[in-house]
Design a protein around this nucleic acid. Structure first.
Lengths: 346, 346
DNA sequence: ATGAAAGCGCTAACAT
DNA sequence: ATGTTAGCGCTTTCAT
């Protein structure tokens, strides 16, 4: 075994302290602190000397010592209630973006749908004196607050808290569904069906009822009752069969996810019903590999997850600075048009 | 504006300190510390009283104070050199798994392929006195060390460092490619082609040359020269056309990625060449949405990214505990057989 | 313009 | 068995 005191390859043992910097520059630690933080009134020459010494020793201030005295850590925790996945990444990137710009670091915790782990991480984060916490998850359904009377602000991103006093940032899924329907109407489609995920899934029901409502608002009837199933390509293929076997003369399908839409696209074309000429298709999620892999490329609703992550982080920073927000903010999505709806309006 | 001193909804302002706990329990801070950490010799009754007081106040020890005095933070940094993405997630989960078990928290930093950001994060992490750093990235190609003479150990995961003294944990891509070829040979295929990503991409060349070598080792010739292209389904479809237009009687294709394989599968079936009966197909990555969405379901090579993340974290913990490892460790992958190669051996 | 000293919250060594 | 003290590295008064 190594590590028994011999020099470890290219590794120095200890970071320099500000006292060492001060000593090297021939000043007191207090003066060094001022010099490095641009505070106090120092001779430029002194400031320079200290900075050089710091440089030379590769000095980086010890954040623990700093936050111990400042009462702030410039650190936030991010807890994903389920697992880190496809949806968490853009959220994370967005949050990291907004926080990193504010010199704030992120502790990432993956609770994996386990309430025990969740509480364990919550305690850990509080022990680490994070300045705030972002709670995320894969489902948009409201969940009970992660804690009561926490000493730091919490913002929910993508998911929301059942407590209306909590601050949540969520996608406006109903708005997304409406945009999808309106787009299909705009290209002249009138016999629109909706195929989506499981009926017990919040996103599925929200999107479905908004879609149905948008169809009625246009004075139309849906071409078929909503088809609930799974969030998979296989279900999309199956649903295509169901739709084609009815007498309904469908001319467009809005799907609850890109995967479902892709499955549908495949099955429709195989049955000799070209997309979009015969049947136009809109997906949901705007997931790159799905919308690009689909033939034809898939028009889809983008929930702007990165924006949600960024907004959540900004609200958290505001709360940390004493200006907390409350309630649910629903961010609008965008429709990204592609070949699966590229036809001339009627 | 709120936050001006009025009570913020359900929020307490300050976490309790150990002195407050001690006062409530009627003991000194030192005794409280011993009671809560199971050290020293205390009357069970005293220990209990302190624990109750801590409970009552919702006490969680201030990690900054603790690490300031312990010289350890029980924190590691994870820098993704490119962006957080599909490959980073399993790595992250694996690492988080191993570290979380050791009560170690993870700072996540996304350097986005920007050396400036990378160095900024490195400094940040060092300032936060992390006990160690994991460096990851989307490409397996070796990269220059992230820093020289760092005061903490570093382990590279998925990517590797060009400095052989550094510790890297990478997938054994050549081994994976060999397994793919051997599997195809085992089901009786003899005319094997290889379609993969860009020639300038490290993974593409490593996998391609290992595949070619495995084919020669069996005393065979490849059915066609390696087809280099993109990591996309579109390229897979295109490559299918190329293969079918030659006189080569291909009976199996090993693809450098699942996306390429899926594109091939689609195009082959459309050209009346059923998979796997006519042409068997093996992908690479074992990416769930691709292997399951593909028809037939796709046999693929799994690089065990989670295992790589876990191993990297374990090696980092060992290094932190004074037992550093050096050099590159290549972890073997696994072949996951599915319908795209499900035929009876010849 | 600079230095000295105190204190953030905790733990470990020492004293009682 | 418990209390007291010092100090981790930094910043911030308050002196000088």
């Amino acid at each position: 075994m190594s590590g028994n005191g011999e020099e470890t390859l290219g590794t120095i043992d200890r970071a320099a302290t500000i006292s060492e910097v001060a000593a090297l520059a021939g000043v007191s630690p207090g003066t060094a602190s001022k010099a490095l933080n641009g505070r106090g009134a120092l001779r430029p020459e002194t400031r320079r000397r200290v900075q050089e010494a710091a440089e030379q020793l590769g000095f980086v201030a010890n954040a623990a010592a700093r936050s111990l005295q400042a009462g702030r850590t410039y650190t936030v925790g991010m807890i994903t209630t389920d697992s880190i996945g496809r949806f968490s990444i853009p959220l994370l990137i967005g949050a990291e973006d907004a926080l990193g710009a504010g010199q704030v670091s992120v502790f990432l915790c993956d609770a994996r749908d386990d309430p025990i782990r969740e509480q364990y991480y919550l305690r850990t984060l509080l022990g680490r004196q994070v300045d705030g916490i972002i709670v995320t998850g894969r489902r948009t359904q409201a969940r009970p607050p992660i804690g009561r009377s926490l000493p730091v602000p919490v913002v929910y991103a993508f998911i929301s808290s059942t407590d209306p006093a909590d601050c949540s940032v969520v996608p406006d899924e109903a708005d997304g569904a409406r945009r999808a329907i309106e787009h299909l109407l705009a290209i002249g489609r009138r016999r629109i069906a909706h195929v989506t995920g499981p009926e017990h899934h919040h996103s599925a029901t929200v999107r479905a009822s908004a879609a149905m409502q948008a169809i009625s608002s246009a004075g139309l009837e849906p071409a078929a009752p909503v088809l609930f199933g799974e969030w998979s390509e296989a279900w999309g293929r199956q649903a295509a069969g169901i739709l084609l076997s009815t007498e309904a003369e469908v001319d467009a399908v809005f799907c609850g996810s890109d995967q479902i839409a892709r499955g549908l696209a495949e099955a429709l074309q195989e049955s000799g019903r070209p997309v979009p000429n015969d049947i136009a298709l809109v997906g949901f999620d705007n997931w790159d590999v799905m919308v690009d892999g689909c033939r034809p490329a898939l028009t889809s609703i983008d929930m702007d997850l990165e924006g949600i992550g960024r907004t959540a982080a900004e609200l958290l920073l505001a709360a940390i600075n004493g200006d907390p927000a409350h309630g649910r903010r629903a961010l609008p999505g965008r429709l990204i048009p592609r070949a699966s709806t590229a036809v001339h309006p009627a």
